[in-house]
Design a protein around this nucleic acid. Structure first.
Length: 216
DNA sequence: ATCCGGATCGCCT
DNA sequence: GGCGATCCGGATG
């Protein structure tokens, strides 16, 4: 029968790592196209990976919600680095969030990974997220997914093509399954439509009201 | 289902 | 000194 899904240690369970040229494009386009790709982190504990279902674009020094609005500092330096590296920042004295650095018109820009759908390493994620009361709560937020995948300070500046933290090609998401909304949790430029999400996916951090009608 | 405050600290004003 | 690209638990309707 179909016994070719060998559970043997396989270097890449999914597609190839996304090339640098993928990230070296307008940030909105990168944010859109990251939907459906797979974020994978290999550690001594094992492999944990998930399908990206929600992203946000932060575009340059003139986007006041973007950390680069503060200019180039020790903290924001990765945003000025090459497309395809990770920008991992510490927030609220407690949590980490991971971005993929892009390059929009030479501006320091990045895409925040806001939610993933767990695919590999569910037990590992549960162990790392003892407070999650459901599979959904494992990774339905930018801080949560970093806990589940053990992404932190060490992953800042990582090359997302060839480090322990990789983004691989996955199953593309059709346009009709993609929604765009304003970004979450920002007070400045709060109405800019720079958040992309997979419609009806349970792992999306905050489902837009417009699509809650089905439950009424 | 929704709202609110506390936790906790690095960074910019 | 004050505020975050957040999460969680408890209170409220």
């Amino acid at each position: 029968m179909t016994r070719n899904a060998a559970p043997r240690a396989r270097r890449s369970r999914f597609g190839a790592p996304l090339p640098a040229t993928f990230y070296d494009r307008p940030t909105e386009q990168v944010a859109r196209d990251l939907l459906g790709t797979v974020l994978e982190h290999r550690t001594a504990e094992g492999i944990a990976a998930g399908r990206i279902v929600e992203t946000e674009a932060y575009i340059g020094e003139h986007d006041l919600a973007c950390h680069a609005a503060a200019g180039k500092t020790n903290r924001t330096a990765p945003l000025y680095g090459p497309p395809g590296i990770a920008y991992v920042y510490f927030i609220y004295g407690m949590y980490w969030c991971v971005n993929a650095v892009t390059r929009a018109e030479g501006e320091p820009s990045a895409v925040l990974i806001r939610a993933i759908e767990p695919v590999v390493g569910l037990d590992l994620m549960r162990a790392r997220r003892p407070r999650a009361r459901s599979e959904i709560e494992l990774t339905n937020g930018p801080g949560k997914l970093c806990l589940a995948l053990a992404i932190g300070r060490k992953e800042n500046w990582s090359d997302l093509r060839r480090s322990s933290l990789v983004i691989r090609a996955g199953t593309p998401v059709r346009d009709r399954d993609v929604m765009v909304t304003p970004r979450i949790g920002v007070s400045r430029c709060a109405d800019w439509p720079l958040r992309w999400l997979v419609r009806d996916n349970p792992w999306v951090s905050k489902t837009p009201r417009h699509f809650l009608a089905s439950s009424g």
